[in-house]
Design a protein around this nucleic acid. Sequence first.
DNA 1: TTGGGGTAGCGGCCTTTGTCAATT
DNA 2: TAATTGACTTTGGCCGCTACCCCA
Length: 867
Amino acid sequence: MGPRRSARIAALTDNNKQNESVEQSTVIPKRKVRSKKGVENVNMTSSTSIPTENISRSSKTIACEEVTEAIDVLITPAEPSINKGKSKESTLPLIDSSINKGKSKEIFQHSDGSKSFLEPIDSSWLQKRKFGQSHDNDNDSCNNGTIEHSLQSNNVNEEDDSDDWEEVDLSEYQDLSDNPSESRPFPNKTIQLTFKMPKIQYKYCAMAFSLIEYELQALFDKALVKIDVKHANLLTIALQDLCKWWKNYFTITKPGIRNREYHEFGEDGVENIIEKDEFSDCLPSIDAFRRSLRVGEGSRDTSTQLFVAALRSLGIPARLVCSLQAVSFRFARKNKTAASRNRKEGNGSNNENLMNNNINEEVQRTLGLGKYKLNANRKDSKDVRVGHSKKQRSVSKKGRKQDDLQKSDVPPIFWCEVYFAAYKKWICVDPVRALVNSPQAMEPASNVTDNIMAYVVAYEKDVTRRYATQWGARTRKLRVPVTKDGYDWWHETLVYFARPYESKQDDEEDAHLHKLEVSERIPTSIGPFNNHPLYALERHLKKYEIIHPKQPIIGHIRDEPIYPRRNVKQLHTAETWLREGRQVKIGEQPVKHVKSRIYTVSKRRAANMASLYDEDPPESGLYGEWQTEEYIPEPIINGKIPKNSYGNVNMFKECMCPIGGVHIPINGIGKVAKDLGIDYGDAVVGFDFQARRCIPVVHGIVVAKENEIMLLEAWHEHASVVEAKNNAKREKAVLARWRKFIIGIKIRMRLQNDYVKHDWSDMEEEESEFHHGESEGESELYHGDTDEEDNNNSIGVDDKGETNESIVDKVVINNNDFSDYMDIESEFICEDKVEVNTGDDFMNEENDGEGGFIHEENDTDEVFMLE
DNA sequence: TTGGGGTAGCGGCCTTTGTCAATT
DNA sequence: TAATTGACTTTGGCCGCTACCCCA
């Protein structure tokens, strides 16, 4: 079996990192080598390595498997006499075909005490066998597409299948093998290399492998010796036979995963739903998975997954395909129907309606399943919920028969694909229904709600187009749509799972899928033409669309011409094209007229006037892109800026700037230009729509280029003058506030000096009266007869912020630069602190006093914040 | 069973250059 | 007196899509 497996894998390649490996395999020339003429001998030793290119490739391949431990291998020059394929040490015992042939249900006692019809996988021959297998696989990868080296000769019936091997001119290698000392690729010295040895992972493959009847294995061997159409056909037959055998072997007990609606998840959450699911089996561990294989029972999903494992054990490059049952982003249609029906009929109470809805949901779900039925231990509860529908009862009756599951022709969620190197294609294989190369059979009917085909993935690749016969008409619409700004959720998601490199095989497959997409058959009904990516009908055109040109006509449906979608063109008004930086060519007439939308007040008035005189409402002419050209701005002559009818310059795009002009995007600079006598135009860059009014957005001005420097210099000068003025204004305002603040302090102190020392209660009363009597600002008590006198009574604050009033013991401004307060003041919040040490502790309360300050208590100082 | 046609309901997009009074 | 600023209004109407129903 070993050498034949080598051949097989050479033809079809390793399948774990399938694309990469398969690509390598496809370049393998016709040459084939008898295992008798092997040129290498591999011994297992413990040493390290001089990795060769081929070996490193091998190691790479193995690394794709689940490997954990590394061992060292010593390669010595080949000894042909040993590798005649008959070495007893390297030859595994022959498989007794009776094990698999007709006696597959024989019961064996396993080491763990369990019983099954399978021979225990830890039997010695199997251990040896899988050891041989692993090396065969490894070595195949080492061949680099030039020659195959048989490392192990565990030759099962070698004489029998020797006819399958082709004679290859090995003169080049004959020398090598006969005279090891002269070998060129391997000099006459020991080469040590290291690679990782696969661990227990092969055990699972071996389990599946051991189940397969020997005739089937032989058939695959025969089919895989060569890459041509003849052998590809043989491989198809082998796959069909394998499927039939698998269908008989594996008993389907559950239908598998089904699509759910959003509301079904409720409060249970996804995990609980999965565990409670009656339709699929939740395999919590690899042991459960293995047990399912051993017993030969499980859901349809498990069946396919195990089948893929079996295929891989045969060396077939197979990959699992899954039609993801994503929860729809739309509302549940059926439920809504039922709910509305109940509403209309008005039968029963709300609770009854609710119950009916639930029942209807179950009915729909069950009907959607077609022939599926639950297994025996679940059926009772299900029957109760299903209700009294006649149709449903019939489904229920059918469902009791286990055969229904087995014979079900409802497309599964899982299936697999096998790579045919001869065709350079992945071929669909459905082990549940024993179908080979029937991709169209994988698509569920449109009325089935439990199986929605929207995203079909094969490992890391989206292969939906291979299976969706109505990709553009139906399947595409089931997906989360691409947003207007181009965000494609699905594409972005797949990026995380994609390999960082693309192989030749990937390119071929992508090209094939693309070909399928663009060659989708024309729909046979009207509906699917709506928004179809390839075809279009005139009736589905949107308001701002037109078909141009009206040739070619692809076909007709009910006497209505079908046009290619690429001929559907977008139309715009002349104004909209202008905003895109394009203008309508001279002499072009609108290709379509639409009723003008009445949005602005001015348009409404125009419409009212029209209706007053029984005139037709105003219309807008629409133009296609082919009727427009790039906007050509007018030139500036003698510094005169060309303007539109509103006295502005349209600057929706930078390319619309008048020739010889420059856009200065500074607001307010127009005033400076005006002062200098420079002609300018306000630059309109867009529109705002507020309260049913269209307001142009002006950003800067447009002037002649020769005036730009002069204008900018004047602008900077103007800006500095304005800034100085503003600073002076702020400074004045801040000083006024400081004056007010200090006066407030003075008032408090006077009050304290005059009243507080005598009687606190009196003070409180009088202060209360004081607050009521005085509104804000200085108290009249401290007003002089004149402003001058008043100022003399107040505390003066010089530029350094120091007071000249002796009654205040100390006023400290915690800021070195007084001017900073001006900036702060402008925001009406002063975060810097003014420390006031009055010597008395009379203001230990928060107060928004006459001076407009707030007192904050502090551990160490009295701190006030200006407001 | 499938699909067309009609209807209802909903969400979202479209619109494309004021006027007047108070204040500075 | 001219220039500037800010409030006003307040929400329409249509398109496109989907769900649903009825019927052929």
